[in-house]
Design a protein around this nucleic acid. Structure first.
Lengths: 196, 196
DNA sequence: GAACTGACCAAAATAACAAATCGGTCAGTT
DNA sequence: AACTGACCGATTTGTTATTTTGGTCAGTTC
């Protein structure tokens, strides 16, 4: 059951070519002709692996979600407090420019073009991230590490804070350094602003 | 210097008609003919008070900002802790459906149509709100009530949290009651999630 | 004669139509 | 059997004709 010694793995070629194209040009501006060209493959070949453009895009998105999940799972250590895990995952996440590139491009595409498929993809990603965070929030809550709260809502607001600190802060602010993002996140979310 | 006993204050009529129209139909779909009709005034009359549509819209927006500021100033008591003032202003703000209607309509217009003027108006509003909150954050910081932080950034994230709890939460969640919004805002922002 | 009006105009938005592009297929090549 | 690219209908894009809109101003009203 060893991986076949194919001369070239065309499926992988298509996957990589489309991933780069989606991240660079967005969903709409990525054409199947272009993907075939970049992959060095005939257009028909794409359709032996993926039913259509939508499915190909879905594959890229779920691949991204899977990688994020693996990154987080690799980082989280159950014996360590929730806060520290959260910070460490955030820390590593901030280095992953690749994933961010696709998400950022799709986000821009939704703003500028309103492409429905890009919107849907981002919503799926958001739901996955929120669900993942919510699970850990719930665990921490059950262990009595953090106060009672609605895990989903809390996860949602956490994500919004993260995005505001990284992507959007540029509007009112200079972009923040990685250390500043972590610092603010810890202050806002764990310790609270009130002096005690 | 008593207010003149005009048979009708046409300026006010125009202002009220356009306020309602902007809130109901948005910037683009509000026509000057329509405003004149609602105000019960000839179209030319509008232009004796306002140079153009842009200026009329600007007047409505700055009026809204002024009202919000007055509401807040009327509520804030300097001798009371920052948190309590914040909560009380939020509390009263949540009852002001009028202001929210215009902001919500403009927000939708930016999403759906991308109208530049609507975008600009919302950005002005956002800057005003952030600047206002930031001033109070800085005061509270100087008084040692809250930890050191960047007032502008903190105000910005506070606003984002507020919007996420009120407007956006509906996507992942049922809309929250006023009490829940206040509760979560207090937990997240003042006490922190960590159990101590 | 100051305040006000609405027919009027240029400019911008929309609709209608023609041309180009794209997702997807499949007969033919390797 | 795996793969290709010319081909096709559908969608998008570019173009032109029509309508709508912001703004003006000669004329009416009080």
């Amino acid at each position: 059951m060893a991986p076949e010694r194919k001369p070239v793995d065309r499926r992988k070629q298509v996957l990589e070519a489309s991933a780069r194209s989606f991240a660079t040009f967005g969903y709409k501006a990525t054409t199947m002709d272009q993907v075939a060209k970049i992959a060095g493959v005939g257009k028909g070949t794409i359709y032996t692996f993926f039913a259509n453009k939508e499915e190909l895009f879905g594959e890229i998105m779920s691949g991204m979600i899977r990688e994020l999940k693996e990154l987080a799972d690799r980082t989280v250590r159950p014996e360590v407090p929730f806060v520290d895990n959260l910070m460490e995952v955030l820390h590593r996440l901030l280095d992953y420019r690749e994933q961010h590139a696709l998400a950022a491009k799709l986000s821009q595409e939704v703003r500028d073009l309103g492409t429905p498929m890009a919107k849907e993809g981002l919503e799926t990603l958001e739901r996955a991230v929120v669900a993942y965070i919510a699970r850990h929030v719930k665990d921490a809550m059950d262990r009595g590490e953090i106060k009672p709260c609605d895990p989903n809502l809390t996860a949602y607001i956490m994500l919004k804070t993260y995005l505001a600190l990284t992507a959007e802060s540029r509007h009112l602010h200079r972009p923040l350094s990685k250390e500043e993002v972590l610092d603010y996140f810890r202050t806002y979310w764990m310790e609270g602003l009130a002096v005690r």
